[in-house]
Amino acid sequence: MPSEPATSLLIFLAVAQATAAGMLVAARLLRVRARAPARLKDTTYECGETATGVTWVRFHARYYVVALFFVIFDLEAVFLLPWALGARDLGPGGFVAVAGFVGVLMLGWFWALRKGSLRWQ
């Protein structure tokens, strides 16, 4: 008698995490330690030079338009999944309805393509 799928899933994830954690613990037991803390060992790596400036600054995320598109298409997928499951039962009617919905979306995609929003800027 197999257990509830969700329970099995939780057990599996717990085992996966425990295994990874076990490897970290094993490494903690086995690894070498420097006798005295070194002055430069724990500095940020920047090709051997002293690191200049700070890392956590604001900089241009060039793909923010792409991120917007991702949200749109991911939402579309959320609407498509229930239809996909019942596509056979819904038949031609369901297909036409979904095709209309996706068609409008792809019209938007085409417009964005022509505007050049899908290019690296």
């Binding site: 490897m23 094993a26 490494a27 903690r28 086995l30 690894r31 070498v32 330690r33 420097a34 060992k41 724990d42 500095t43 940020t44 790596y45 690191a51 890392t55």
Partner: peptide
């Protein structure tokens, strides 16, 4: 096993 024995370094920053 080699990687297990390596020193663990965490950058100060």
């Amino acid at each position: 096993f080699k990687l297990m024995q390596k020193e663990s370094i965490r950058p100060r920053q």
